[in-house]
Design a protein around this nucleic acid. Structure first.
Lengths: 137, 137
DNA sequence: ATACATGCAAACACTTTGCAGCACA
DNA sequence: TGTGCTGCAAAGTGTTTGCATGTAT
C-alpha cells in the first residue's frame, strides 16, 4: 500500500506542472508556501524524489548548483547560463545513439547519459555586449 | 604578481598528477595529509580551483556528489557507476560538433558541453550478477 | 615591502534523516 | 487500524569565506 494521495504530494506535482521554468526544490517550496498552504521543505524534497522516481516529473541534476525539476518528462538536454545561472531547454533531438559510440574496451556498461551545455542566454549576451561597449568606450 | 609557487600548491598539483583515479578534493586532501605534510582542506579547495582555472588540471563537476579532478586536461567524457559511484573515463572521442547540432531558435549561445554517462563498472556488473543468482537460486 | 597564500573555524548551500504525531486507504 | 506521510529541527555533505598570520617575490 504505497503512494498515498496527500494534499502535499498533489501540490508539489501541480506546482511543477505549472512552473515551466525548471524550478529548484526551494523555488517550488516558496511557490507553494506563498500561495496559501503550509508545507515543509523536507516534504517538498521527499515528494520531488518520489514523483521523479515514478516518472511523473523529470529530475535534472545540476553540477555546482541546486538540482531542478521539469514538468516535461521526455528526456531532453539543457543549457546552464554562466551569466544568470538559469537553466534553459536546448533545441536538439535526444541522441539515442550516443551511448553506442562508447567503445567498451574497458568493460563499462552504459545505461544512460546527460548532456549539459554551458553558455549565455539572450539576456546575458546583451549584458556582456553592453559591458564591452562601456570598456572600449 | 599572481600565482606564487608555494609548497601547498605544488603538493596539490603533484598529487592530482600522481592519482590517476579521478580523486575528489577530500581524497586529495587525505592523500597529502597522510603522507607527511600538514595542509588545510580550504587550501586544497583553493588550489584546486586556481589550478583548474589555469588549465593545469581538469575539474569534473559531478551532479549529486563531490566534484573530482583529473590530471588529464584534454576534454573527455566520464561515466559514473551507479553501484560504487566511482568515476571512469569513457572511451569515446570528444564530440566537437555536438554544439553545432543545437538549433539556435531560442537565441542561446552555446560555448561548451559536458556529457556524463551513467552505468555499471565491471566490478559492479559482477556484483549485480551474483545478487541475481542468489535471488533466483 | 607587499601582495598573495595559508590555517583554522565558522558560515554557507543544498539535501537527508530521526522522531513523534497525523491521516489516508 | 496500520502503514505511509507530515512538520520540525538537527545532522550531513561538499564547498566557500573572514580573519589574523605567514611567506614568496
Amino acid at each position: 500500500m504505497k503512494n498515498r494521495n496527500t494534499l502535499q504530494r498533489r501540490l508539489v506535482l501541480e506546482t511543477v506542472r505549472r512552473m515551466h521554468n525548471h524550478p529548484t526544490a526551494d523555488e517550488i517550496f516558496r511557490e507553494i508556501a506563498t500561495e496559501n498552504t503550509l508545507i515543509s521543505k523536507a516534504t517538498v524534497y521527499r515528494n520531488l524524489k518520489i514523483l521523479s522516481e515514478q516518472g511523473e516529473i523529470l529530475h535534472i541534476p545540476i553540477p555546482n548548483g541546486a538540482d531542478c525539476f521539469d514538468f516535461q518528462t521526455a528526456p531532453h538536454y539543457h543549457m546552464e547560463c554562466r551569466g544568470c545561472e538559469r537553466v534553459f531547454d536546448v533545441d536538439m533531438p535526444y541522441q539515442k545513439d550516443l551511448e553506442k559510440k562508447v567503445l567498451n574496451r574497458n568493460g563499462l556498461l552504459i545505461e544512460s547519459h546527460h548532456i549539459v551545455f554551458q553558455g549565455l542566454c539572450p539576456h546575458c549576451q546583451e549584458q556582456k555586449a553592453l559591458e564591452h561597449q562601456k570598456k572600449t568606450g
